[in-house]
Design a binder for these strands. Structure first.
Lengths: 320, 320
DNA sequence: CTGTTAGCGCTTTCAC
DNA sequence: GTGAAAGCGCTAACAG
């Protein structure tokens, strides 16, 4: 029995007698034979591995994206190298080099904010897709959540709940995510022919800020009936203050968060309505882009803004 | 110029003339040559890759562990395949097979709770270390946080803060983590010659339960001055209720959480003292165990309980 | 010091 | 239908 024949038998090549194939398969099982992917890759010229290069320390964004990517690739077909650059360019270069020398078939770069990040450069010999944080080069392929639409969606939901005296409390204005969401909120208000009770309030992504902002809003606009928050953390702070001041949610004031971070939304009093960025879908899309590029399909460069979705809970519509 | 010589030059073998080496290195740079790890691994018999097999969907535990492991291996020296089995045994087997056929040098298995998990079996041809969730086979190597000591540490801290009328509110009694922590709390109380104001209260790992439990405790034991919580989520609920009932933290009641989950602890009012499981250290230790095993050092089977640490914030000691 | 040779484990022609 | 041979990109052993 030659090695070549065994190879054909195991790989389903059709130049093998059924009987022979049978014998080979049986033998392989007995020996618990598992083909050496290293060697297979060497001859095939592709490894079936992809690198995921991230700086998302907390893993809040990267994990759903990774899961989506795994889904798209098909579990076990493609494996993912996860590398954490910790926001350090040197370390990123280091990891990039390592990934390339391991001959990954593609690279997904995941940022921790939606601000554009520096491109890895055009001379990478494998396809690269930027997820969450788009690349600053229009020649690259990027996928990112549509924060503008998210902002719109949040405000429109409050309108649909019958609210008209609405404010927007959000995080660090240095983040483009904060500005995009605020733009969406303002545009939706404008389209509906209403004005927010106050200018959007920017500060930091924390519960503390949510508490402080809500305090001020309730003081100066006692008739306020809806607050769009730029993050779930801010929303948690807002909820606390409303409660402390003896008002109820959602009867007096409806509150909506952003990110749909489960640990925050489902533990809130009442549970928090929020905008979900569909990160798993984002990961899936990124993986598909890589896949297409590997197959040689021409990539459309530029940034794709993927749809987000509204998750309604008790902070905007009372549960009975 | 022969290929072999080039290889020697680039790998720092000492049988090359300095001038030749110089020439080779320069040429390599010009061509942006990066050696094919696949081929190197094939001949070396080891790949410099490790598999991280997890079922921790949220990534709350796995990310710090991954970071610790990366640290220990040295960034870029070893790369990590991250595979998420999603709590599904079939998928786990699938990933395991994929990892083995990729010839990883070792496997770290990360669970999402500290209850022992089924072993992958003794017939894996590479070293395996179980992190967070130990293996149920004493023949395996496991590292897990020392929840018992964590419970002790929490209670001792409240004692050190002068508290004596203390209760323990924790999560699902189906989790060994809940039981271990409770045992530690009780043991420390016993050693100090005090009794808890009530039996440890088990229910679920949620803020909702924390709120309900605190309500009951304050009702029945108005003089209570300290509460050890089994998780930060529970602690957040406890804090809310204490506040709602007009008592202050830490003056009237000191509260300590568990897990040191930043998003919960640093946003609390006041910020939450908590027990940190040192997961990054855990990851580092797991990686070192793998490393030793790869080097052929004999492994000590069994479960190692790694020390945890106390992180003091305003919920037990007032900040001025 | 340099180059030749063999071989890592596998797949793929291409004769037989 | 089967097997011998070449080669994927690299390193190690040995001759020159």
């Amino acid at each position: 029995m030659s090695i070549a024949t065994a190879s054909k038998a195991l790989n389903g090549r059709d130049q093998v007698a059924p009987a022979t194939r049978e014998r080979v398969v049986r033998a392989a099982e007995q020996l618990a034979f598992s083909p050496n992917q290293q060697a297979q890759s060497l001859v095939a010229g592709r490894t079936g591995t992809v690198g995921l290069l991230t700086s998302d320390l907390e893993g809040r964004f990267v994990i759903p994206i990774l899961m989506g990517a795994e889904d798209a690739f098909g579990a076990g077909q493609v494996n993912v190298f996860l590398c954490d650059a910790r926001g350090d360019t040197i370390r990123e270069q280091h990891h990039l080099r390592a990934l390339l020398s391991r001959r990954v078939d593609g690279i997904i770069v995941v940022g921790r904010q939606t601000d554009p990040r520096p491109t890895l450069g055009a001379d990478i010999p494998v396809p690269v897709v930027y997820a969450y944080a788009p690349s600053d080069s229009p020649a690259d392929v990027s996928v990112t959540p549509d924060n503008y639409s998210g902002g719109r969606m949040a405000l429109e939901h409050l309108l649909a709940c019958g609210r008209t005296r609405i404010a927007h409390v959000t995080g660090d204005p240095g983040y483009i995510a904060a500005r995009d969401r605020a733009d969406g909120v303002l545009a939706a208000a404008h389209d509906a022919g209403i004005e927010l009770v106050a200018e959007p309030m920017f500060s930091e992504w924390s519960e503390r800020w949510g508490r402080a902002a809500a305090d001020m809003l309730l003081e100066r606009h006692p008739d306020i009936d809806g607050i769009v928050c730029g993050s779930d953390q801010i929303a948690r702070g807002v909820l606390d203050t409303i409660r402390d001041r003896g008002r109820t949610v959602p009867d007096d004031v409806a509150v909506i968060g952003y990110d749909n971070w489960e640990v925050l939304t489902t533990n809130a009093r009442p549970e928090l309505t929020s905008i979900d960025a569909n990160l798993q879908q984002l990961g899936r899309t990124a993986a598909l882009r890589i896949f297409d590029a590997i197959e040689g399909k021409p990539a459309t460069p530029g940034t794709d803004h993927l749809p987000v979705r509204l998750v309604i809970r008790g902070s905007t519509i009372a549960r009975r």
